[in-house]
């Protein structure tokens, strides 16, 4: 118990002393996660709307695949992207393996099904009168999409927050595509795994506290956006 208390005190000292190594790791994590979430949102939200409003053959199968993809094993995504980005892979010329771009690309694929699925569910859960009301007010197709998304804004924001929470806390992709390079691709999760294996509990615990703080903030945001309001 004393060991745990000592480690916790050392971790708090590291945080309060603004240790550059700790903050660089936190920054890298937040940066790649934010970029991945943004990419997934830009692609996934319109796809979610499209899948929700359009009727097409194979829609049920697609929704089933999307549901399954929400539990995508991160090491499988990591492995797939490793093959794509490695020197001999089709995207090897980009030189993204073991870079923050590589991690962000892998994480965006992890976040994409979450974004599409939650947006689709949000739009399908909207009142059926909304589409008729938009049309009867004379909205063009583009204006209808904007109005529908605006009505689903809390649920779509929740999708963004959930996707961010998923990518910031994953370790497999960051490890396989980032390579855990100190000061470059080391994220909170890969650093925790490494420092723990080295016996450096203070640093691992300090990063763990940050990760928990991020998780708390993400959930606080989710709570705030889902509060009933005007």
């Amino acid at each position: 118990m004393q060991f745990f208390v000592d480690s916790l005190l050392s971790a708090l000292a590291l945080i309060s002393s603004f240790d550059p190594e700790v903050y660089l790791v936190v920054w890298t994590s937040l940066k790649v996660s934010a970029i991945a979430t943004a990419i997934a949102a830009v692609v996934g939200v319109p796809l979610g709307v499209l899948f929700a409003v359009k009727r097409f053959p194979g829609k049920r199968a697609l929704v089933l695949i999307l549901n399954t993809s929400m539990a995508l094993p991160t090491v499988v995504v990591g492995l797939f992207f490793y093959a794509l980005l490695s020197r001999r892979g089709p995207l090897g010329h980009l030189g993204w393996l073991f870079t923050p771009q590589g991690i962000a690309a892998g994480l965006s694929v992890l976040a994409l099904p979450i974004m599409v699925n939650l947006t689709l569910a949000a739009i399908q859960g909207l009142d059926a009168r909304l589409a008729i009301t938009c049309r009867s007010l004379g909205a063009s197709v583009a204006q209808q999409i904007v109005l529908i998304l605006r009505e689903a804004r809390f649920a779509v924001t929740a999708a963004v927050v959930v996707a961010f929470g998923r990518v910031v806390s994953e370790v497999g992709i960051a490890m396989m595509l980032g390579g855990n390079i100190k000061g470059f691709t080391r994220t909170m999760t890969t650093a925790i795994a490494l420092e723990t294996s080295k016996g450096e509990f203070e640093l691992a615990l300090a990063l763990g506290i940050f990760l928990l703080a991020v998780a708390f903030l993400v959930n606080a945001m989710l709570f705030l956006v889902q509060r009933p309001r005007v």
Binding site: D127, R129, L130, I132, T133, S136, L137, G138, A139, S140, Q143, L147, R150, E151, R229, V230
Partner: peptide
């Protein structure tokens, strides 16, 4: 855009009364 439709149970947007009434004009 030349027709006004009043539904039996109208849908109002999650905003103020004024914004709801102004919506068609904004469009």
């Amino acid at each position: 855009r030349r027709v006004g439709l009043l539904l039996q149970n109208p849908y109002l947007f999650h905003t103020t009364v004024l914004s709801n009434v102004m919506l068609g004009l904004k469009i």
